[in-house]
Amino acid sequence: METLYAITVGTLTACSVFLILRGRSFPIVIGLTMLSYAVNLFLFSTGRLAINELPLIGVGETSTDPLPQALVLTAIVIGFAMTAYSIILAVRVRGEIGSDEVNDTNYAEQEGQR
């Protein structure tokens, strides 16, 4: 199970890094979303992977760590808000500048004008 889990997290991270390094805002936003999925999975695994165990002490013989679950929940909420914000921002940039290139070609020109 650990191997499968590690491969999943690694694949997600690799894909997201590739997408974040693209030059247009849409793939970047998708990449950031994927990265936050990978991070959430990774955080979840820090309490060690276990099947059929409760995060409660005293119910069964062994128990699993409840803290990573709380951390993941927090991370999901924050990640969700940030994704929403970055999508809106990307749309706004596309609308105002007229291109979704992160660094567009007449960038140097604009800098001179400021």
Binding site: S25, V39, R92, I97
Partner: peptide, 16 residues
């Protein structure tokens, strides 16, 4: 807007 886009993307990666 452009500066914000750069800043947001960098910091979201930083948060991850």
């Amino acid at each position: 807007l452009r500066a914000t886009l750069h800043y947001v993307v960098l910091n979201l990666t930083g948060s991850a």
